[in-house]
Design a protein around this nucleic acid. Structure first.
Length: 704
DNA sequence: TGTAACTCCCCTCCG
DNA sequence: GGGAGTTACA
């Protein structure tokens, strides 16, 4: 063992339980870590410890839930090992054994392999995918691309009724949900339908046909959707030669947020760890909130059975939240039956109780939150230490208006992200097309922006273009087009030619080459075309950081990096964070507002209707609460709009919090005025509404 | 026949 | 803001 000349005093910087994990979690190990128990810290120190023990960084694989989490953890590892001095400082970017040039840009801090399952899958498949017949220039389809493709397939295989958009035809989104769930849960189509779309069982033959055609089409166009990245990784591991190579390669595998992995991910990590057996998984059943993606809580529960000699560790001391916030969190989660009972404790001094706020409607809710934010800022709370959380992305709307009005900087997370916005996707489609001539969804997307070219003409062009082997041949392509379409077509040929001419100059140059045309299109199409062109300029600048088109496309498809709505680049000036609860997982802020706490939002009626859905919604509330360190505000609007009669009722979860734990009262008397969501049908039954609309509680800022 | 323009209506969560 | 459905025009 190396002499301890290092400067990390593991014993001193960790509590006893954390220290045990960091130093003893060899072999299969399960860490049950409560919210705020220093789970990230523990993982970071574990990686640093392994490096200090002399493990080569590239032999460590750290799988996280978001790429952001991977970057954060690995940069912290980098800081830690920086302290250790040269002797044990890891080499960086040295992964030649399984990785080629394609992966040179990747989520690394200290040369450790890190990222999401999808991210790592992408890197591996580009390099090794030929073993399962995959081309290295495959395209990644995002949800919208997948839906577009499915829409066309439904028309194609669904017969005349579907072509006309027959009255009973389910949306493409339903098909995608069923097919995706089947992939993630490793189910057959009919089994997935039983769970996700039981009312449509009589359409099973159609679903099966669509699924088959979808798979076929993805293969033809060299594209993978998000779910395919995982299943293809698994398929890759069925190839003995590849499996043995990878099993031998990673000596230590660490997986964060294990409660949100699905069976495919579980099988991947168990296969990868089969040789060295150093598999460390960390999770918290109380924070499992991704069952819609087929996350399987059994992965955690069954871990000790899969590995009979597994070590089990528990982290229960909460370092994040005040005792008052923790009490509310414990109280909320205690209402769930399916859970490991555990109670988080803290040694922190008492602070102030969480506070309930009620507003007339979302607009007033936004005003109140904005006012309170300004008051907090006056008291010295930095804006970037404040977050506003909500169930659904669109619930940020009213607040965004209000914050803009008051010039309070904010950044929005969740919902439509930079790379998902229409004009950005248009620009990206050109880069995809240049990289992969067979990328059908990119073809449709690009052609749709040309005058006179609609679905039918586009299809004709794409059919003909299937003959092309290279863009060079494009001018020779013969398609008979209507008069209306030929102008658009010649514009297209010019533009794509210019873009292709920049192939050697890199992705940024390609984007700039299409801008003259796209500006003309955007001017006609969008009122805010100037903003949109600015976005595209930003995209080109971002693209300049990449040398190859493939890396750029892969990162943007995986949402690796994203700019932020509200005009504030991440990290520029301190900004309030607006986020869905899902996106807030793993993060923490001094002050947290949870808004829209009504029975039509949290629990969300559709989610509550699914089996186990209500408990998952409660866990979602629990996750939101446990993001807060010092101040927590629970906010609900009485109606959905100032102008409608439709009244909301406060979330049933608020009622479950015992009196005395929070400041403020629910605006209702006794049981009256509550609506219940039937957990089976999702039906809403009202037992009378509270319609006086008076605010019984006005927030004051005196007691801050 | 295919495209463009117009209207209505909706919207859970994500890599 | 965007997707689906409908209608008017080339």
């Amino acid at each position: 063992m190396s002499v301890s000349t290092h400067m990390i005093d593991f014993k001193k910087e960790l509590n006893q339980a954390q220290y045990e994990v960091v130093t003893k979690a060899d072999g299969p190990s399960l860490v049950l870590a409560g919210a705020g128990s220093g789970k990230t810290r523990t993982l970071v120190y574990r990686v640093a410890y392994l490096l200090e023990q002399g493990v080569a960084p590239e032999r460590i694989l750290l799988l996280t839930f978001t790429n952001k989490a991977a970057h954060e953890m690995l940069s912290r590892v980098g800081e830690l090992v920086g302290k250790m001095g040269k002797k044990t400082k890891p080499r960086t970017l040295n992964r030649e054994e399984v990785q080629g040039e394609a992966g040179a840009h990747s989520a690394t801090g200290a040369g450790v392999w890190g990222g999401t399952f999808h991210h790592v899958a992408n890197r591996l498949l580009r390099k090794l995918g030929s073993a399962i017949g995959l081309k290295s220039n495959f395209t990644i389809l995002d949800r919208e691309d997948s839906k577009d493709m499915l829409k066309r397939i439904i028309k194609e295989v669904g017969g005349p009724e579907a072509a006309k958009g027959g009255r009973r035809m389910p949306q493409p989104g339903i098909f995608l949900e069923v097919i995706g769930y089947a992939a993630n849960a490793q189910l057959k189509i009919d089994e997935a339908m039983e769970l996700k779309y039981p009312e449509g069982m009589q359409l099973f033959p159609l679903f099966e046909k669509v699924a088959a055609r979808y798979a076929e089409k993805k293969q033809m166009t060299h594209s993978l959707d998000f779910d395919d990245l995982l299943t293809a990784w698994l398929r890759l591991l069925k190839v003995p030669r590849v499996r043995e190579k990878l099993q031998g390669f990673w000596e230590y595998i660490l997986v964060d947020e294990y409660q949100d992995t699905n069976v495919v991910q579980d099988e991947i990590v168990r296969t990868l760890a089969a040789k060295h057996k150093n598999l460390l998984v960390v999770g918290d059943d109380a924070q499992s909130i991704y069952s819609f993606r087929a996350a399987n809580i059994e992965n955690i529960l069954q871990f000790p059975k899969q590995f009979p000699n597994a070590k089990v560790f528990k982290l229960e001391e909460n370092y994040r939240s005040s005792p008052e916030i923790l009490s509310v969190a414990n109280e909320v989660i205690a209402h769930n039956e399916a859970q490991f009972k555990k109670t988080l404790f803290t040694g922190q001094e008492p602070f102030i109780k969480p506070e309930l706020m009620v507003a007339q409607d979302p607009a007033e809710e936004a005003e109140q939150v904005a006012e309170r934010i300004m008051a907090l800022e006056d008291e010295g709370v930095l804006l970037d230490r404040i977050a506003v959380l909500f169930r659904a992305a669109h619930q940020s709307q009213a607040l965004e208006l209000e914050l803009n009005k008051r010039n309070i900087p904010y950044e929005m997370r969740g919902g439509l992200r930079f790379f998902e916005r229409a004009h950005i996707k248009d620009a990206l489609a050109y880069t995809r097309l240049i990289a992969n001539l067979n990328d059908e969804s990119a073809w449709y997307r690009v052609l749709a922006t040309y005058e006179g070219i609609g679905d039918v003409t586009a299809q004709k062009i794409i059919m003909a273009a299937g003959e092309l082997a290279d863009w060079i041949q494009l001018p020779e392509l013969s398609v008979s087009l209507s008069q209306a379409a030929s102008k658009g077509w010649s514009d297209f040929v010019t533009t794509i030619g210019a873009a292709h001419g920049q192939l050697k100059a890199g992705p940024g140059a390609i984007i700039r080459a299409i801008m003259p045309y796209y500006r003309r299109y955007a001017e006609l199409q969008y009122q805010d075309f100037k903003d949109r062109m600015d976005d595209i300029e930003q995209l080109a600048l971002f693209a300049d950081r990449y040398e190859t088109l493939e890396e750029f496309i892969a990162d943007t498809s995986l949402q690796e990096a994203y700019a932020v709505r509200g005009g504030h680049e991440e990290g520029h000036e301190p900004s309030v964070v607006l986020s869905t609860i899902h996106q807030a997982k793993g993060l923490e802020w001094n002050t947290v507002f949870i808004i829209s706490l009504t029975n039509s939002s949290l629990p969300h009626p559709r989610a509550a209707a699914e089996e186990g859905g209500l408990e998952e919604e409660r866990r979602l509330f629990y996750v939101a609460i446990t993001r807060a360190q010092r101040r927590l505000y629970l906010v609900y609007p009485l109606s959905s709009s100032r102008f409608t009669m439709s009244l909301h009722q406060p979330s049933q979860f608020l009622r479950e919090i015992a009196n005395g734990l929070i400041t403020g009262k629910l605006d209702t008397d006794g049981d009256e005025g509550y609506i219940d969501v039937d957990p089976v049908t999702g039906d809403i039954t009202s037992n009378g509404v509270d319609d006086d609309g008076e605010r019984s509680f006005l927030p004051s800022i005196d007691d801050l």
